[in-house]
Amino acid sequence: MRLLFDVGNTHIVVGLYENQFLSVWRIGTQSFETEDELYSHLFPLLNRINIGEKDINAVVISSVVPSVNYILSRYAKKYYNVDAVFVSGIKIKDMKLDVDYPKEVGADRVANVLALKKYYGNNAIGIDFGTAITIDVVYKGNFIGGSIIPGINTQMMSLFSKTAKLPQVELKFLNYSVGKNTIDNIQIGIIKTVVYGIQQLLKDIEKEYDTKFKIVITGGIGKSLKGVIPEFNIYDQYLTLKGLNVFYEMYERR
């Protein structure tokens, strides 16, 4: 049984996998400072579904937060007696990272493109809505790059923290484009600009490569955006976790 960690700047998505995803949880990335504190978070969740320490035989991690990597390594060794496996672009095979600096590609993006290729084909684009929005392009089976955008909540919090009178607002995609109040103005200005900006970017990519790509959205906010434009038709909440599995199976075969 595998314990999978997708470590983001704000949250860690933890998946329990054995032939299928048995459970998925989210915990705060800054909610623990030691391996024992992490254990105190996860023990009741695992215990609730009758999973003990001896049931876990692998811990696989994609992390964009280096400060927690040592804690996760200690956690894996102390409680499961396994060495944590960290996703890295320099360790993959059967996919070329066709970018200027392959070693700089984030582990979450490596996981996403591995899952895109396996589950959605050799021409696919993944859009991960997190603290940052990452757009990853798989073309002819290889990762050829993409783009990074400040996340929707990141933009909202920046606006709220830098201005005296603007309120915090909920994420909501409105069906009109002229706001009559401050909240509507913010929702339209941030959310629609991001969504329609991505829509145009996707059209530009398909035109540039003369290819129709399978487009997949993921991330916590991604679910609420499914269907708001035709391109956002496929939502895969487990995309990154699936990529961790692909990487681990690749790692095991080496």
Rank of each mutant, 00 (worst) to 15 (best):
F86Q: 10
K96M: 12
L3I: 08
V105K: 07
L16M: 10
M156T: 04
I149K: 07
W25K: 13
F86L: 08
T240Q: 00
Q237R: 09
N142H: 15
L201F: 10
F173K: 05
V13T: 08
I127Q: 03
K91E: 15
L116Q: 10
F232C: 02
A58G: 09
I61K: 00
V7H: 02
N9I: 06
I234Y: 03
D55I: 01
L244N: 05
D6G: 01
S40D: 15
F129Y: 08
S73L: 09
I133K: 03
Y235M: 06
V59K: 00
I191A: 06
I205W: 00
E37F: 14
I71F: 11
K162M: 11
D94P: 09
V13G: 05
K77Q: 15
Y209H: 08
G146N: 05
R253V: 14
W25R: 08
T211I: 13
P230S: 14
I234M: 05
V82G: 10
E249Q: 14
E252I: 14
N185R: 15
K140E: 15
M156N: 08
R109F: 11
A132I: 02
Q199M: 07
R26W: 01
I144W: 01
K103N: 15
G222C: 04
Y101A: 15
V216L: 01
L97S: 08
K242E: 12
Y75N: 05
N47I: 06
G189V: 13
Y79G: 05
W25V: 07
Q199D: 11
N233L: 12
L114C: 11
I135L: 14
G130V: 06
W25Q: 10
A115F: 10
I125W: 13
Y238I: 04
V195M: 03
L239S: 01
P66V: 01
I186W: 13
Q30R: 14
G189H: 14
G89W: 12
S73D: 12
Y196N: 02
K172S: 09
H41C: 11
L46M: 13
P66C: 00
M157E: 12
T154M: 15
G219R: 03
P66T: 06
Y176S: 02
I51S: 04
N122M: 13
S73V: 06
R26C: 00
N181L: 14
Y119W: 14
D236E: 12
Y75C: 01
D94L: 09
Q187G: 04
H11P: 01
V105G: 04
E33A: 10
P66G: 04
R26M: 01
P167M: 03
D55P: 13
A124E: 06
